[in-house]
Amino acid sequence: MNLSTILLTVYVLVWPVIVAGTLTVIVRAFFADWRQARREGRPII
């Protein structure tokens, strides 16, 4: 395997990690806002 193949493999495999991290941040923020809205007795929308 040459270097370009290894770099391309790493590049392709890093995307799911980035997407999973971003989705985790969004989901955690959503649930934090949801819990706060429930505590305050107001709708989230």
Rank of each mutant, 00 (worst) to 15 (best):
M1E: 14
N2C: 09
N2F: 07
L3E: 13
S4K: 12
T5Q: 14
I6C: 02
L8H: 08
T9W: 11
V10W: 05
V10I: 15
Y11C: 14
V12M: 08
V12C: 04
V12K: 08
V12S: 09
L13I: 08
L13W: 06
V14R: 00
V14K: 00
W15H: 11
W15I: 15
P16W: 00
P16D: 00
P16Y: 00
P16F: 00
P16I: 01
V17M: 06
V17G: 06
I18E: 07
I18F: 07
I18V: 15
V19M: 05
G21E: 03
G21T: 06
T22M: 09
T22E: 07
L23F: 14
T24D: 10
V25W: 08
I26N: 01
I26S: 02
V27E: 02
V27M: 08
R28V: 15
A32S: 10
D33S: 12
D33F: 08
D33Q: 14
W34M: 10
W34F: 14
W34S: 12
W34A: 10
R35W: 10
R35N: 12
R35C: 07
Q36S: 13
A37I: 01
R38F: 06
R38K: 15
G41E: 04
G41S: 03
G41M: 05
R42K: 15
R42S: 06
R42P: 03
I44G: 00
I44F: 04
I44D: 01
I45M: 07
I45Q: 11
I45D: 11
